[in-house]
């Protein structure tokens, strides 16, 4: 099975994944194949700030099956400005999970 690995240490919340996905699939207003969630800004007891974005694929995500068949990357991975999204077999992606703040999604049976 293939999945999406997000290293959200470097997700700046730029919305490129969401927009690329909407354009690629022709989604209407209110329809999303991937959606950002935002945590913070929230000040912790030690004075530091938590402020994270995590893009979350929805059930509309097909991991860009047509693009992948052509030999392209899913468009969210291609256009991610933080270069923090990875596509591939989940076993390979799991091996890349070497730090905190990473999440592996398996949005569909592709």
């Amino acid at each position: 099975m293939n999945g999406l690995l997000i290293d959200y240490n470097f997700c700046t919340g730029c919305h490129s994944c969401e927009m690329a996905c909407k354009v690629e699939h022709g989604f209407a207003q209110g329809e999303w194949g991937i959606k950002l969630t935002q945590q913070g800004p929230d000040q912790l007891a030690d004075g530091s700030w938590e402020y994270n974005y995590i893009p979350t694929p929805t059930d509309r995500c097909d991991l860009c099956a047509d693009r992948v068949k052509e030999g392209r990357l899913p468009t969210c991975v291609h256009h991610c400005q933080g270069l923090c999204m990875y596509y591939g077999p989940v076993e390979d992606l799991a091996r890349q999970m070497t730090s905190s703040h990473m999440v592996l999604f398996t949005p569909c049976e592709q």
Binding site: C14, H15, S16
Partner: peptide
């Protein structure tokens, strides 16, 4: 830009 684009360029069409 290594293939990356912001949402405004992605809205170019």
């Amino acid at each position: 830009n290594d293939g990356r684009l912001c949402m405004r360029c992605l809205a170019m069409v």
